[in-house]
Nucleic acid binder design. Structure first.
Length: 776
DNA sequence: CTTGAAGCTAATGCC
DNA sequence: TAGCTTCAAG
């Protein structure tokens, strides 16, 4: 099959091949046509990378005649994969493209482990633990190893373990090379942590990759099957792969060497996820036959924008020189401007977006606001609501991170895999059912001593109670006054009397769920659980803290139900497993709805790979970009610079670099300095400083009521007056009543009712928003 | 012993 | 701002 493509110059096959290559520049053409052996594509931003990859795949399938089944394209996000599939569907038709493998390393590995993980002792129903779950397991591991979480930060240890796995360092190897006392502690925790994962039949994100690597390493026959299956391997965003991902790619391509990697060292922004740019250098070492193609023409951005971006990136020392040759001409310079604070910044941007739409033929969806941290999105949301501009917020409060969503998912996981300790611990007391921390601790301890799961321990406790207890309605609880601990064959069960009935009920719930998991659809299981535990009632009586009230939380659960129903067409056990896997591997940016009309609000990291006619890069301040936490290491600073470069190069026609003079940090607001990256934008590439620098006067802040009204939800506005909240005891002055002392300050509808004892005029109740009160 | 509320502290990025 | 720990009440 590898030779057929040589015939494309023949008359019969030439025309489709030529049609496929038409419109590509020589470098792109070469990247598409060079099908034999390893290929490294070093590509700048906007160089038509995705086009090259999709055309290459189309070439393989249509011209060479490779079965799409045998092509595996690994991209960085599910979204990129989806985009690739859509492009391929257009090039190849849905039938052929539907059979291609295109996804993230994580998704690919999950599938492989689901299928062949048994070879390394993995249960088919393994759960995937996310970062929060890892943290929960680690806390327990700390406890079991008697490590003080105050002396050793759980997060830091998690990062160390994660890094180890990303670099193919297993527990044993870690122990062997542990140098410091700290390393030895981490080693102990690492070992315990892995044991706990095994117990829970769980793998974390890093394990997905690492265990697949081990599977291939220890079972050449399994690897051989996948080598035959994936004859052609493509890796996009190669600069962001880590050691284990690259190792996997090498394993898969080990036999046929048909590997094509595409990357841009200047866009490496994931070193904190252990990405290693050196993979690009190692590639040439590991595949000496590799051909290198450079794509340096930029089709995306106008010369002004490229000049500006280039000015920023060339200041990096650790860098492979690469040109950016603009294909476009004309355009307008970069606009650099300053606002007073983050609200004005948002307001200025949103007005400018509106102006672009009215005067210059842009649509809202042509524009994007890019920022360093998610917390920056809020003022922009508010400004959009105020000006009635539709917006698309990409993953600020990630849907799957919401408490209520995680709770519901934990129940589902537990239904499929009762050994899942993290999920069990999560739902044991949600909603509260009379089982508290003490009982939970005792159960876990006892389960460990018995060598069984906590769920099993609960069943045993419940079982030891049921003989003298009728179906859990009172009789049992009253009858067991004398002994304070129940006893079974294995010895003492240390369960406080108060929790026994609750445990029996919970045991019964677990059994029902397990039964449901094997014969019902994900949606049915979910509904059963929600109904059974009274989850809706639980949410609705939750206090509306901060921005979320019970209704909204329940809405989120409804959204999860909708997602569950999408996985409900598969036969029962697989349906639930598939759903849970999707939930674990999907990220919020994957459902960025391109069809929807609206301004995009997105982090710089998430913006990678996207493009917009107009980009507003906001928060161009020291401490944000570059971020404070990156400022003490030169390497991390260079990464911040690349991040800035990535942001700037998302723009096709307009680029705005915006900063706020003051910004709220921790409670208070403080002055900020302009980002050092601004200094590196060549003056010729920007509008004259000062021309647009003065911002519009600020309008009054939106009250909650206005916000709610603008959001069109009609839900009661939450109490957050623009004046500072009052507390009992505060001294105030009223225009008419004079001075007095605040007696109480309470929410009342959308407002606050404040009761004041005036020195001269007695006690008055006032509506806070309209009362001419001044705090003294 | 469990629960709910109040107070405190620390704050990127994401599969 | 939220997540956590501490504290007081049932």
């Amino acid at each position: 099959m590898t030779e057929t493509h040589q015939q494309t110059t023949d008359g019969a096959t030439a025309s489709p091949a030529l049609a496929l290559l038409a419109g590509l520049n020589p470098a792109q053409r070469e990247a598409v046509e060079h099908l034999e052996g390893p290929l490294l594509i070093v590509a700048g931003p906007g160089s038509g990378k995705t086009r090259v990859i999709t055309h290459r795949i189309a070439y393989l399938v249509r011209i060479v005649g490779v079965s799409p089944h045998r092509v595996c394209a690994v991209t960085f996000t599910n979204k990129a994969a989806k985009e690739m599939r859509e492009r391929l569907a257009r090039l190849l038709g849905p039938d052929l493209s539907g059979r291609l493998t295109a996804g993230t390393f994580h998704a690919l590995c999950a599938r492989i482990l689901r299928r062949d993980g048994a070879a390394i002792g993995l249960s088919r129903d393994f759960v995937i633990y996310d970062t929060d779950d890892q943290q929960a397991v680690l806390k327990r591991a700390f406890e079991a190893e008697d490590v003080d979480p105050k002396r050793f930060a759980v997060g830091a240890v998690r990062a160390a373990i994660s890094r180890a796995k990303a670099q193919l360092i297993g527990v044993e190897a870690f122990g062997n090379q542990a140098a410091s006392p700290y390393d030895h502690v981490v080693h102990r925790v690492y070992a315990r942590y892995q044991a706990m994962l095994v117990q829970s039949q769980a793998v974390d994100f890093d394990d997905l990759l690492y265990k697949t690597y081990l599977l291939f390493h220890d079972h050449p026959e399994v690897l051989a099957r996948y080598q035959e299956r994936y004859l052609h391997l493509l890796v996009d965003e190669f600069q962001d792969t880590n050691v284990v991902q690259y190792a996997l790619a090498r394993q898969l391509a080990g036999k046929y060497q048909n590997i094509c990697v595409v990357g841009d060292p200047d866009q490496a922004i994931y070193s904190w996820r252990h990405a290693d740019v050196r993979n690009i250098l190692n590639f040439q070492r590991d595949f000496p036959a590799a051909k290198t193609v450079r794509l340096e023409t930029n089709y995306r951005s106008t010369p002004y924008l490229l000049q500006a971006a280039q000015g920023v990136i060339v200041a990096n020392r650790q860098r492979i020189e690469k040109a950016l040759v603009p294909a476009k001409s004309g355009g307008v310079p970069v606009v650099v401007t300053e606002a007073y604070n983050e609200e004005e910044e948002a307001q200025w941007v949103v007005r400018e977006v509106d102006r672009l739409r009215r005067d210059e033929g842009f649509r809202y969806s042509d524009c994007a606001v890019l920022y360093r941290v998610n917390a920056q999105s809020r003022p922009f949301e508010e400004a959009c609501l105020r000006y009635g501009i539709p917006y698309k917020l990409v993953g600020a409060l990630r849907f799957y991170q919401r408490k209520e969503v995680k709770d519901a998912i934990a129940y589902l996981r537990l239904a499929l895999n009762p050994a899942d300790e993290v999920s069990l611990a999560r739902v044991l007391s949600v909603p509260p059912r009379g089982i508290g921390q003490k009982t939970a601790d005792e159960l876990v301890r006892w389960a460990r001593s018995q060598g069984c799961s906590t769920a099993e321990a609960i069943h045993r406790v419940a079982g030891s109670l049921t003989p003298n207890a009728a179906p859990y309605n009172g009789a049992a609880e009253r009858g067991e006054g004398k002994g304070e601990r129940s006893v079974d064959a294995a010895g003492e069960i240390p369960v406080p009397r108060t929790a026994r009935a609750a445990l029996a009920r919970f045991s019964e719930l677990l059994r029902e769920m397990t039964k449901a998991a094997i014969k019902l659809t994900p949606l049915e299981v979910l509904d059963l659980v929600l109904e059974r535990v009274g989850y809706k009632e639980f949410l609705l009586k939750q206090p509306a803290d901060g921005a979320q009230d019970g209704e909204e939380r329940w809405d989120n659960v409804q959204e999860l139900r909708a997602l569950a129903s999408e996985s409900s067409d598969l036969p029962p056990p697989e349906g639930l497993a598939t759903f849970l896997e999707r939930v674990a591997l999907v990220s919020d940016q994957d459902n960025l709805d391109e069809a929807k009309e609206g301004l995009t609000l997105i982090t710089l990291h998430q913006a990678k790979g996207l493009e917009f006619r107009s980009v507003f890069l906001v928060g161009m301040e020291e401490g944000l970009l570059p971020h404070t936490r990156s400022m003490d290491s030169p390497e991390e600073l260079e990464e911040e610079r690349r991040l800035c470069y990535v942001g700037m190069t998302r723009a096709e026609e307009r680029l705005y670099l915006v900063r706020a003079f003051r910004r709220h940090m921790a409670g208070g607001s403080s002055a900020s300095l302009p980002s050092r990256f601004l200094r590196d934008v060549p003056v010729e590439a920007m509008t004259q400083p000062g021309a647009l620098a003065r911002t519009t006067p600020q309008e009054p802040r939106l009250t909650r009521r206005e916000r709610a009204a603008l959001a069109g939800e009609g839900r009661p506005a939450e109490p957050l007056p623009d004046k500072p909240a009052l507390r009992p005891g505060d001294h105030v002055r009223h225009e008419k009543f004079g001075e007095g002392v605040v007696a109480s300050f309470q929410p009342s509808g959308s407002d606050h009712e404040v009761t004041v004892a005036f020195d001269q005029n007695g006690v008055k109740r006032l509506l806070y928003s309209v009362a001419p009160l001044e705090k003294l």
